[in-house]
Design a binder for these strands. Structure first.
Length: 283
DNA sequence: TGGAATGTTCGGCT
DNA sequence: AAGCCGAACATTCC
């Protein structure tokens, strides 16, 4: 569920809390929560957090000494800053103690907690110079907010794949997941199974603008909470109320009143308005 | 009770 | 090679 807007929400919440603080000795509660071996997070201790950033759906903590802590929340990962020591919750996977207090006073006794019910999320400590060799990092496509509409259109034109799996492909465009892909396709009145290269230039531009629009609106709402996502302070993202198709099977389309339907496209649950998003017709 | 859901990678098939 | 599909990962939810 965490897609670009949710990760951006987490980054914005954590940035003022974490920047400038120094990690203590990490405690890995579940070995698979961190990449690398034999002690994947051992080089974290003593590093200062220089910056908190987002790239695609990764959080990136830039650390002193040319290190980076990459965090991918996958489906149910969540981050919070909590008093420490304390009894870890059943789904807490890693505890990263923080030295130095918020503001100038050293109040101590806090940690960055990585919780993850379904345990697909990952922490990955990577040297700056090794980042370029990480396939899941280096293969990432452009950020939607750093891309020109014309460039997006040109990229679409080369693709024979259907829109839905294409937009979900992080190497084509970084940051979209199931929710915002469906919302953007609906807004642009495009069917998810339409072959990308058959989208007209005008429609492609509309799609790109709608992608940026829905992402921007979702960031402003603090992301979408469907079931798992929460902000670092425990509050919910409010964009769920603004969803127009995702998860709304049977409910009326807000544009034409026809019932929203659920399809499977590229193996993923996909919601559309059958009236506003006409299926691709055979040649 | 078990099928669906979520993001990503991978392997097999066409 | 490109694209599609399903499997796998682990767990919760209904």
């Amino acid at each position: 569920m965490p897609e670009l807007p949710e990760v951006e929400t987490v980054v914005r919440a954590l940035c003022p809390i974490l920047t400038g603080r120094v990690f203590g000795r990490p405690k890995l509660l579940r070995a698979s929560a961190a990449e690398g071996s034999p002690e994947p997070l051992s080089r974290l201790t003593g590093r200062r957090i220089v910056a908190v950033e987002r790239r695609a759906k990764f959080l990136r903590l830039r650390l002193s000494g040319g290190m980076n802590l990459l965090i991918h929340l996958r489906m149910t990962g969540r981050l919070s800053v909590r008093p420490w020591p304390a009894e870890p919750g059943p789904h807490d996977r890693a505890v990263l103690p923080l030295r130095g207090g918020r503001g100038k006073k050293n109040i101590g006794g806090e940690a960055l907690l990585f919780g993850d019910a379904r345990t697909f999320g990952r922490l990955h400590l990577v040297r700056e110079r090794d980042l370029g060799e990480l396939p899941e990092w280096k293969k990432l496509g452009p950020e939607p907010f750093s891309l020109a509409a014309a460039e997006f259109t040109a990229r679409l034109r080369t693709q024979k794949r259907r829109l839905k799996p294409l937009l979900l492909d992080q190497t084509f465009l970084a940051g979209l997941g199931n929710i915002y892909t469906d919302e953007a396709l609906y807004a642009a009145r495009l069917h998810p199974a339409l072959e990308a290269r058959r989208v007209t230039a005008a429609k492609a531009k509309t799609l790109f603008k709608e992608i940026e629009k829905v992402l921007r609106a979702a960031i402003a709402a603090g992301g979408t909470t469907v079931s798992d996502f929460v902000r670092p302070d425990g509050s919910e993202g409010l964009f769920r109320r603004k969803l127009r198709v995702y998860g709304r099977a049977g409910k009326p389309c807000r544009r034409c009143g026809k019932a929203i339907v659920r399809l499977v496209v590229g193996g993923r649950g996909t919601w559309i308005c059958p009236n506003c998003q006409k299926p691709p017709h055979a040649p």
